[in-house]
């Protein structure tokens, strides 16, 4: 029989998980230059909600953990092409060469247009995963890997001593794809149109310029090379091109599986504090094991000799 048995009720386990989860935040931004346009994102998220179920098969099921976007900005930058009048060549009779007229341009340079609408309130995703409880030994003498994959994810401070650490170790994870609603397409098109329009004076000048560039919507689509369904294009960008989905999934996995224990027990464990110059009394913790039952998490361990 194990020397020590500890049990944590499912409700307490859930509270621990909730508090740990509450510390998970992720923010990132990137901007990729595609020549005529730039695409990027500036995002920040945290986790909320979800249910925790300790199961009889020694697993923990986390369901419907909400990804809450504090910021989900899509950055779209267009390099509006040169808008010029004149130009062209006319044929002249010999010996005069063909004459080419200079172009006179509306702007002194190629104007940039950039929008960064925030779709945080329009996108909702959930994460669900099933994992096991894993007890691992943290040996303070073993150097951390370099680079340390937990450097930005660690919310539980690194201990200064050896520890038994218990992790929720997800085995499989379901993460909703980015799915931008229909309204997003219109918002992007409107925002870009407004941004481009703001560059151009009104009246006949605008008519002329719009005629030259062939209409703003068409210009935008031509530059960005996007299909009719902007939402789908955007979803695809986030899911695949930016690689954000995989990134978030990996972060959540690492956060729980290897960077932040849900419980920890010092080894040796101090049972009597230092007093009046006397060293603290510590007991070695050996053979620690953890398992999930239907209603609780049970840790068993021995006191070392």
């Amino acid at each position: 029989m194990a020397h020590l048995t500890l049990a944590v009720s499912e409700a307490t386990f859930k509270r621990s998980f909730d508090l740990l989860k509450r510390n998970f935040t992720f923010q990132d931004s990137d901007l990729q230059d595609y020549g005529a346009f730039t695409l990027g994102y500036d995002v920040k998220m945290h986790l909320e909600g979800g249910s925790v179920d300790l199961r009889a098969d020694n697993t923990v099921q986390i369901k419907e953990l909400d990804i809450r976007w504090d910021r989900l900005k899509v950055i779209i930058g267009l390099d509006v092409p040169e808008i010029c009048v004149g130009g062209g060549c006319i044929n002249m009779p010999w010996p005069v060469p063909d004459i080419c007229l200079p172009k006179i341009c509306v702007f002194s340079g190629d104007p940039d247009v950039s929008i960064s609408p925030d779709f945080a309130s329009l996108v909702a995703q959930e994460i669900s995963f099933t994992g096991s409880l894993a007890a691992r030994y943290f040996d303070v003498t073993i150097p951390l890997p370099s680079p340390d994959p937990c450097q930005l994810l660690r919310v539980v401070p690194l201990p200064g001593n050896n520890q038994w650490q218990i992790f929720v170790d997800p085995q499989t994870m379901d993460l909703d794809l980015f799915d931008f609603p229909d309204i997003v397409g219109n918002l992007i098109e409107d925002a870009l149109t407004s941004a481009v329009t703001a560059l151009i004076p009104g009246g006949w000048v605008r008519d002329l310029i719009l005629a030259i560039i062939g209409g703003i919507a068409d210009l935008i689509r031509a530059i960005l090379d996007i299909p009719d369904d902007i939402e789908e294009w955007l979803s695809d960008l986030f899911n695949v091109s930016f690689g954000l989905l995989d990134f978030i999934g990996t972060l959540v996995l690492d956060f729980f599986a290897s960077c932040n224990p849900i419980y920890s027990i010092d080894d040796p464990f101090e049972i009597l504090p230092a007093a009046s110059g006397l060293i603290p009394v510590r007991i070695p913790i050996r053979n620690l094991s953890v398992r999930a039952h239907d209603l609780e998490m049970v840790i068993q361990t021995d006191v070392g000799a």
């Binding site: 950055i75 340079g109 190629d110 940039d112």
Partner: peptide, 14 residues
């Protein structure tokens, strides 16, 4: 995104 300094060629439209 860094914006370029762009000026409208006003003389074109006078």
């Amino acid at each position: 995104m860094h914006k370029k300094k762009v000026l409208l060629n006003r003389a074109m439209f006078s």
